[in-house]
Design a protein around this nucleic acid. Structure first.
Lengths: 217, 217
DNA sequence: TTATTCATGTGAAGCTTTTCACATAAACGG
DNA sequence: CCGTTTATGTGAAAAGCTTCACATGAATAA
């Protein structure tokens, strides 16, 4: 990382998009790519792409563009996905079960290696080779397994209790799928995945004939 | 809707949060709520709450706050979730199957009434009382069933073909779970649900000791 | 070698969003 | 009924983010 200035959330999210586009470009054997092309592929502006990347360094060559493979590796490094993350998942319901098999996670280095639920019928059962543990043992087992990130996919009503236990286990990063806001200490990162939100946005857009954000050439 | 000014995406997303908080408050029999309390519950600022709401009208009473039930109904109206939406889901894989049973959708009026897949083994099978149709008949069946919103949960490699068919069927709102950018005409709303993105953000935050956005009292 | 083209990197301008701060007004207690 | 408290609604200021525009420099062709 270059400066000490705060990098915006939007920039980080766009890095994910660049990474994705670069993966495709790499597979298609492109050697280099311009900010213009990268922007076109993710519906952004070339200036935006260059500015985002410039926060972290100078990765391109004037007149030529960015080296695909190298830039992809750089972004992986910035995002911290150039390594494996030890992930646990709590809540083996609809969403939880789907996430265990979600290829995109493992592809980015997020390895789900522990599963938890509080339903006796699920405890002990096997999902993708992982045995479901009792959520009552969350704290010791998270520590024992040296988990770094926990995904919460439990009902909203119990999410806060689960998160409290996760925090007690010393976990500093939580991804929450429960549609509820959760209290965590300042030194714990928590992010929320709210799947209804985007549907609601669509609904709003239709009902209000909302102008789409202009996409520039 | 009051003015003609463009409402920001963030404001709409926060309306979803207010709606969620108001649902809880209503269940807990609160009559009124202040911007301060609403802000506290969703980790925002009181000024932000008031400003967001002020784009759409004056819903509060000075000295008292907002009437919970009424404000909830107003927001539902603004978001367009005070009605039922006819939704189809394409791709009955891990994620797709989970979404069929995802309570939060139906709770907000998004009724999944058609399912599609291109896998012969899945076509004809039954999920939550809905029979899976052949994705080859997407266009006529979407029209026939008067579908308004389509959720795409197919592999990235085929997402563009599926979306092309959806557009041909005259659908104007698409929610995409495939981790790929998709081309649609200007008059079609498309939103993306990228579940790795938030994990990548967590990863970035940990690796870079990223300062959390300050939360004000 | 030199001219031309291409495309990055980046200050500065422009635009959007958030926060501030206060006028305004309703509620409530005495 | 009046003073005090509470809390909205909103212009204006501040902060943050995106786009512009151009200097810079690499590549390429002749």
């Amino acid at each position: 990382m270059i400066g000490r200035k705060r990098i915006s959330e939007s920039t980080i999210h766009r890095l994910s998009l660049y990474y994705r586009a670069l993966s495709v470009l790499e597979k298609d054997s492109y050697e280099t790519v311009s900010s213009k092309e990268l922007a076109r592929r993710e519906k952004l502006t070339p200036a935006q792409v260059r500015k985002d990347l410039s926060f972290f360094g100078s990765f391109g060559t004037r007149g030529l563009g960015y080296p695909v493979k190298e830039l992809k590796a750089q972004i992986a490094g910035i995002l911290g996905i150039d390594r494996a993350w030890r992930v646990a998942l709590v809540g083996i319901g609809n969403i939880g079960s789907a996430l265990v098999s979600y290829k995109e996670f493992s592809r980015q280095g997020f390895q789900i290696i522990k599963l938890f639920d509080n339903d006796q019928r699920k405890i002990g059962s096997n999902h993708k080779g992982i045995e479901v543990s009792d959520a009552r043992n969350l704290e010791p087992e998270l520590k024992e397994a040296k988990i770094e990130v926990v995904i919460v996919a439990v009902p909203a009503t119990v999410a806060q209790y689960i998160v409290d236990d996760i925090v007690k286990a010393g976990i500093k990063a939580i991804l929450n799928f429960a549609p509820v806001n959760l209290k965590v200490p300042d030194d714990v990162y928590i992010r929320h995945e709210n799947m209804s939100m985007e549907l609601e946005y669509l609904s709003f857009a239709i009902v209000n004939n909302h102008t789409q954000k202009r996409v520039r050439s």
